[in-house]
Design a protein around this nucleic acid. Structure first.
Lengths: 198, 198
DNA sequence: CGTCCGCTTGACTCAGATCAAACTTGGTGG
DNA sequence: CCACCAAGTTTGATCTGAGTCAAGCGGACG
């Protein structure tokens, strides 16, 4: 199945606005009228708010090939700042037209809903995952969920450092836990390929 | 704005199936054909999978007045087990009819998408929140986000114990951090009402 | 050839988890 | 009206394991 970003690009055609941003560049400010929702094609964007004390609060780090600020579709103002973390390629999708699509194009609407449902599912697990205190159990849980039905091997996407981020550990903690898991025979690995169990 | 569960109940009328479940009761099993999506009206339901080693992995704890297993709308099988954690009131929404609504009822479809977008937003922040190591900063961040624009006071919903769960702390750690915040003058509280800053 | 970055390991610290216990508070029922 | 129970709240002592800082290795890539 197709990425929702690609689907949006297909459907909206020339209305999509591609943009190269430098690190730190502001995409929108809290309170602005939202005219777009966004996709990160390359790099990273952050959603920020500020505490009563003025400290930055990171709401979300949008990584490559993901949509963000979708909630702006249903609001008359952004509820946080959006900023490119580093040099980043952004796609801007006009809110008005996306809403129009959602209302007029049933296939798109369903695909969009499906995408959101998948996100919700993944994010919920992300939270439960982070409530597993032990690094080893957390890793086993994260990997187990990526396994198919009777499967016991899988190839982890990206680097182990990325994986550490995904599961909410420092890379050091991850490497150590992996080693312990290997020593205990609970897991074997070869590069990015992992074998659970014996 | 109306809760999505109430909207579903309104729209689907008598097709909605209400059900009282005892703790431990199975709602569906992984691999079953999904005929429903669910809402928790009272109590709690869990989504479970199992690691290669046979250990339970909690995917999600669905609390009161929330929808769960939405992803089943777009799958021909449940990808995890669903179980009532305790005595629980469940609403069962027939998948077929929900899909029909999504396709035929533009208002509902948009409301559903809006609901999912809100969920995604909240869950993303839940994850970022949990990456704040310090209990104090975590609490400030969680509270700050619940504040309106120029606001500085708010009433926390539920008990402090619930709040501790929400932000991923033990209640002990929460109470201690609250005390430190009060002593430092970063926060004042009176029951469930909190004043940020001086 | 040199630089960058992922990978790996070591030593140390500390804040939150855990276990335990006491004290509120609200509601129930006799 | 009070005894009682359940659940939230609060505090203390202790422990543990992930974070942090630091350093070294090795492969990829220009």
């Amino acid at each position: 199945m197709k990425l929702i970003i690609d689907l949006l690009v297909d459907k909206l055609g020339s209305s999509v606005n591609f943009k190269s941003c430098e690190g730190g560049q502001i995409l929108f400010r809290r309170g602005d009228r939202p005219h777009h929702i966004f996709g990160v094609l390359e790099g990273e964007a952050r959603m920020l708010r500020y505490s009563a004390e003025g400290a930055q609060i990171v709401i979300h780090r949008a990584k490559s090939i993901t949509l963000f600020a979708e909630a702006a579709l249903f609001s008359d103002h952004y509820h946080c700042d959006g900023q490119a973390t580093e040099n980043t390629e952004i796609a801007q999708f006009p809110k008005k037209q996306v809403l129009h699509l959602l209302q007029q194009d049933r296939d798109f609407s369903l695909a969009f809903t499906q995408h959101m449902a998948g996100q919700v599912q993944a994010l919920r697990f992300g939270i439960e995952l982070r409530s597993i205190r032990s690094a080893e159990d957390r890793i086993i849980a994260a990997l187990s969920l990526r396994l198919g039905d009777g499967q016991t091997r899988l190839k982890v996407m990206g680097t182990w450092k990325d994986f550490a981020q995904d599961v909410g550990l420092t890379h050091e903690a991850l490497y150590r836990a992996l080693r312990r898991l290997e020593q205990a025979g609970r897991l074997h690995r070869n590069g990015m390929t992992v074998q659970l169990g014996a």
